[in-house]
């Protein structure tokens, strides 16, 4: 008797969890757009964003595009297929640099320039001491803002800064022999 009751409770809990999971999945899919924290320049172009809409855009800071004039900063933000000019006035986060993934919050003005009132830097999930980074750069096997050596999938520089790199087989760098060739 008690066995069946316990079993019934078990099925009940499992069914409840299943329903809950399915419900959550549905809700999350329905709100997909609201959960997304930022759009890429390509998505902004596709969406015809009007100047009164406050949005966030994310991408990589294009190399050599950063121009500073006192507190006024302008640079190009790219997802490697579309590029937007971003203008910003204020302080930049410490991780902001060329080739780095960033997120800017603001509006698109009628001429297509993004006027940012806040800039946040994305971290690229790579951790290493400066000497290792320098050694990798010196040996030409890696440049800042680019995928680590070993990651050869095309177009990954974007996903590297913006989206999960998923199966990136990056070997932890041995600091003792930083110049040793990696397989």
């Amino acid at each position: 008797m008690s066995m069946t009751r316990k079993r019934r409770r078990l099925y009940f809990v499992m069914l409840g969890l299943l329903g809950l999971g399915a419900g959550t999945a549905l809700v999350l899919t329905a709100f997909q757009d609201n959960i997304v924290f930022f759009f890429s320049p390509t998505e902004v172009a596709e969406r015809h964003v009007t100047p009164d809409q406050r949005i966030r855009i994310g991408g990589l800071v294009e190399k050599g595009s950063v121009q500073k004039n006192g507190e006024n900063i302008s640079f190009s933000l790219t997802d490697l297929s579309k590029t937007m000019t971003v203008q910003y006035k204020g302080l930049l986060p410490d991780l902001f640099r060329e080739g780095q993934g960033i997120v800017a919050e603001g509006r698109v003005d009628p001429s297509g320039v993004f006027i940012a009132n806040e800039i946040m830097a994305k971290h690229d999930e790579k951790y290493m001491p400066r000497e290792v980074a320098d050694a990798l750069k010196k040996s030409g096997r890696w440049k800042e803002g680019e995928p680590m050596p070993g990651d050869i999938r095309p177009g990954n520089a974007v996903s590297d800064g913006l989206k999960p790199t998923s199966e990136t087989p990056v070997t932890p760098v041995a600091p003792a022999a930083p110049a040793a060739p990696q397989p």
Binding site: G58, H123, P175
Partner: peptide, 20 residues
Amino acid sequence: WWNTLHQPASLSLTKSNMSG
């Protein structure tokens, strides 16, 4: 699953983006 400001995991069973 989504664009986030937070970076993806640096560690998993098969990969590591962190030096020893």
